[in-house]
């Protein structure tokens, strides 16, 4: 039967069920994220106060901290690790598995909510929180440094946060950190996006891959995967170039990383779907 796999109307009903029964959890998560991100952003601005004053005096613009964005993005990743919450216990798993919808519909809904929509909401919440914390910090910093700024006839004016800062900072940080073969910002963006996406998908599927102690198992599995990955790249680097000095220099494979991460993402999606399909109590 065709609609055993996907039916738009059934999918809509499943989505409505999810939203009606979990809207409070989602709202709490958004509010908690907004408050948390505002605090984190403020703390990073506070730590950068001296630099902000210095840049103001030198007529330079202060770019918001990439570190605060990274911390908040990490929090988003951790939240992705709590996808498929119903599978955390036998009691709730039973109800979830027996919901009258196809496995594909259940997987797709979770993917849309926890990855696609959640990422959009994350960006929006982060944007609002970063600007709120900047508008809170600005008068505080002006007040704290009033005497000093008055002497120089200056005033701290924090520029509104934009994602261009994050983009630009990522590029500058990557290039400055010594990744000599990172030649264009586009390359960094594309590869970085796929790399981040593969980690996100792995976290998204945690509860499907591991029944118990999922976090510990994920850390151990992640460690071994990355260890094996780097060892393999090193060995292949030597094998292809014949130069032992190329060990751990991944320049040779650099053009293929995009494909590797895309392959990882697709594999994780397919694997996650089949793990859910075969999920047993």
């Amino acid at each position: 039967m065709n609609n055993s796999f996907f039916s738009p109307s059934r999918f809509a009903r499943l989505a409505a069920y999810d939203l009606k029964t979990k809207y409070k959890t989602y709202l709490i998560a958004v509010v908690a994220a907004f408050v948390g991100f505002t605090i984190i952003n403020y703390l990073f601005l506070d730590a950068d106060e001296a630099e902000i004053v210095s840049r103001t005096l030198n007529h330079l613009t202060y770019s918001h901290s990439l570190a605060s964005f990274t911390v908040c993005l990490t929090a988003f990743f951790v939240c992705a690790g709590f996808s498929f919450p119903a599978l955390s216990s036998k009691k709730s798993a039973m109800g979830y598995i027996l919901l009258p919808a196809s496995t594909f519909e259940k997987y797709l809904l979770e993917f849309l909510i926890k990855i696609v929509i959640a990422f959009g909401v994350f960006l929006l919440v982060y944007y609002l929180a970063a600007n709120l914390s900047a508008s809170i910090a600005e008068p505080i910093f002006n007040n704290r440094n009033a005497d000093f700024l008055e002497l120089k006839h200056a005033r701290i004016d924090l520029q509104p946060f934009t994602f261009r800062f994050v983009y630009k900072n990522t590029y500058i940080t990557t290039v400055q950190s010594g990744s000599a073969y990172v030649d264009t910002i586009d390359k960094v963006s594309v590869m970085g996006t796929f790399f981040v996406g593969s980690i996100l998908l792995f976290l998204f599927n945690i509860r499907l891959f591991f029944k118990r102690f999922s976090l510990i198992k994920t850390v151990i599995a992640g460690f071994f995967v990355y260890y094996l990955f780097f060892q393999l790249m090193s060995l292949l680097g030597i094998a292809f170039t014949g130069d032992k000095n190329t060990a751990y220099d991944f320049k040779f494979f650099y053009p293929y990383y995009d494909y590797l991460f895309i392959f990882t993402i697709i594999t994780l999606i397919v694997l996650g779907y089949y793990k859910l399909k075969e999920k047993r109590l």
């Binding site: 009691k91 109800g95 027996l98 009258p100 919808a101 196809s102």
Partner: peptide
């Protein structure tokens, strides 16, 4: 676990979550 099957079966377990 076809949707048509799941829509026609109801299980009430001893322990459940709502």
């Amino acid at each position: 676990r076809k949707p048509a099957f799941l829509a026609d079966v109801s299980l009430i377990a001893e322990e459940f979550s709502l």
